[in-house]
Amino acid sequence: MVSVRDHLPPGLPPDPFADDPGGDPSAALDAAPPGEPLDANERMAIEEDLADLAVYEALLHRRGIRGLVVICDDCQLDHYHDWDMLRANLLQLLVEGTVRPHEPAVDPSPEAYVTWDYCRGYADAMMHARDDD
């Protein structure tokens, strides 16, 4: 029998669930219920968020900002999301109608993340600064 491990480079640690696929906690991710189809307004809002995200990243990435901080509705803690993860989440939401669970940033530097409101204000200020020139 050919396994997935047969196609991986040598030297990797063994798969702890190779002999017990039912014990693999990642199986719960595959069992996540499908999302609800988005209506036209929801799709438009996500597409606008994607466009805004591109602007925010273009303006702030070069200044050392790695992404956004969002207060989680479930745990009330700050969650730090890099630009690429945000884009992937929004695209997944647009296509599947849901965002699957993902790993949080490991040991993030809070000063490298800003809020959506900060991004909006910064982008607005940059637009007005260009108008004044």
Score class of each variant (00 low, 15 high):
Arg100His: 13
Ala88Leu: 10
Val70Trp: 07
Ile46Asp: 02
Ala125Val: 01
Asp74Thr: 12
Asp49Met: 08
Asp117Val: 07
Leu60Ile: 05
Ile46Ala: 05
Leu12Ala: 09
Ile71Gly: 00
Gly64Pro: 05
Glu42Asn: 05
Tyr56Val: 01
Pro101Met: 11
His128Val: 04
Arg5Cys: 01
Arg120Tyr: 11
Asp20Gln: 05
Thr98His: 15
Ala31Thr: 02
Asp107Leu: 08
Val69Asn: 01
Leu12Gly: 13
Asn89Thr: 03
Tyr56Trp: 15
Leu59Thr: 02
His79Lys: 08
Met1Cys: 04
Leu12Trp: 13
Asp52Asn: 14
Tyr122Ser: 11
Leu93Thr: 01
Tyr56Cys: 02
Met44Ala: 12
Ala32Lys: 10
Pro37Ala: 14
Cys119Ser: 08
Leu60Asn: 10
Leu8Lys: 15
Asp19Phe: 06
Leu8Gly: 08
Gly64Ser: 09
Cys75Gln: 03
Ala51Leu: 05
Arg66Ser: 04
Tyr118Thr: 04
Asp19Met: 06
Ala40Glu: 10
Pro104Lys: 13
Ala45Ile: 00
Val4Phe: 14
Ala31Glu: 06
Ala18Thr: 04
Gly23Pro: 00
Ser26Lys: 05
Gly67Asn: 03
Arg5Tyr: 09
Val4Thr: 06
Pro101Phe: 13
Gly23Val: 00
Arg87Gly: 03
Glu36Arg: 15
Gly22Leu: 11
Ala40Val: 08
Tyr118Lys: 05
Cys119Met: 09
Ser3Arg: 15
Asp30Met: 12
Glu96Cys: 07
Leu91Tyr: 04
Ala28Cys: 01
Asp84Ile: 13
Val99Ile: 14
Pro16His: 10
Ala105Cys: 04
His128Phe: 11
Ser109Ile: 05
Leu68Glu: 07
Pro13His: 10
Asp133Lys: 06
Ser26Gln: 06
His102Lys: 10
Asp39Ser: 08
Leu29Lys: 11
His102Trp: 10
Asp73Gly: 13
Glu111Tyr: 02
Pro21Phe: 07
Ala45Tyr: 01
Gly35Arg: 07
Pro14Asn: 09
Tyr113Asn: 06
Ala31Asp: 06
Arg130Ser: 12
Pro9Ile: 13
Pro25Arg: 06
Met126Gly: 02
Glu47Thr: 05
Pro34Val: 06
Val55Thr: 07
Arg66Gly: 00
His102Gly: 04
Cys119Ile: 04
Ser3Thr: 13
Pro10Ser: 15
Gly11Cys: 09
Val70Thr: 03
Gly22Tyr: 08
Pro16Lys: 09
Ala51Tyr: 09
Tyr113Leu: 02
